[in-house]
């Protein structure tokens, strides 16, 4: 099952053939909470993946963070985690936005929902800055039995020395770069066709990369409390690795 926790509700789009998922919060706006059922908010997409989008208010109004809390609690009370039609849920993925701006967005990594956290980043300063910030949050909650950090997934932006930079950054914050996903035009091609890469072109190199990533996550046994670095350290790191030409 994949639970998109971004108000933009774009986590499951490609798994559903480009179809816009009816979000939990949209449904809650239309009918009473007790009238919402699982099939109203969950769709089955590519590879028998159950797709849920939390959704949220329009930009600039309401409280999207509370929206995440409400929709995860709704999913729990609807029994989404118990599986559907006797089919167990083997993995639950929460797609959380990079700027965890309030307690609500941290909901999936707290209260025992998620067990492992993976940060998607690239070798750019802003991406690493955000990753470092998320680490601060994870560390803050480290004593409370919440989810642990499993690694950084480098989603390459073709930056100079990117692999080395992200590996070193990962080492400094006491984790690993679990996989380096190269940049590939296959991603855009699949997206234009409203499909994921694995569905659109399963034999491509890029699809193989994603399978490798999946395997590494499944076999991962390195779970740590991160040691975030200071802004100065991060800037020094960028300077040391980010030599252009």
């Amino acid at each position: 099952m994949i639970v998109g926790c971004d108000p933009k509700a774009d986590s499951t789009r490609l798994l559903l053939g480009g179809q816009r998922q009816r979000t939990v919060l949209d449904k809650l706006r239309e009918v009473k909470p007790e009238e919402v059922s699982l099939d109203m908010v969950m769709a089955t997409g590519f590879g028998n993946i159950r797709c849920v989008e939390s959704g949220g208010p329009e930009p600039g109004v309401g409280c999207a963070g509370r929206g995440v809390i409400t929709s995860i609690q709704t999913l729990e009370s609807l029994g989404a985690y118990n599986g559907v039609n006797g089919q167990k849920v083997e993995y639950v993925f929460y797609d959380v936005l990079g700027d965890v701006v309030c307690g609500g967005f941290a909901m999936p990594i707290r209260e025992g929902y998620a067990e492992e956290i993976y940060i998607v980043a690239s070798g750019e300063y802003m991406a690493l800055y955000a990753a470092n910030n998320i680490s601060k949050g994870i560390k803050k909650f480290a004593t409370r039995g919440y989810a642990r950090l499993g690694g950084i997934i480098c989603n390459s932006r073709m930056v100079e020395n990117e692999r080395e930079l992200v590996e070193e950054f990962a080492r400094r914050i006491n984790t690993q770069m679990i996989h380096f996903v190269p940049r590939s035009k296959d991603v855009q091609r699949a997206e234009i066709n409203k499909q994921t890469v694995v569905e659109h072109n399963p034999t491509s190199d890029q699809a193989t990369e994603y399978r490798q990533l999946a395997k590494k996550i499944q076999e991962n046994d390195m779970f740590t409390v991160p040691t975030p670095i200071t802004q100065d350290e991060l800037e020094d790191l960028m300077r040391d690795y980010g030599i252009i030409d």
């Binding site: 409280c63 963070g65 509370r66 809390i69 309030c102 307690g103 609500g104 967005f105 941290a106 909901m107 707290r110 209260e111 409370r144 039995g145």
Partner: peptide, 14 residues
Amino acid sequence: PALIGDDGKDIAKI
């Protein structure tokens, strides 16, 4: 506190 996402249940445990 419900709006800002305080995890009161976990604090209660601690």
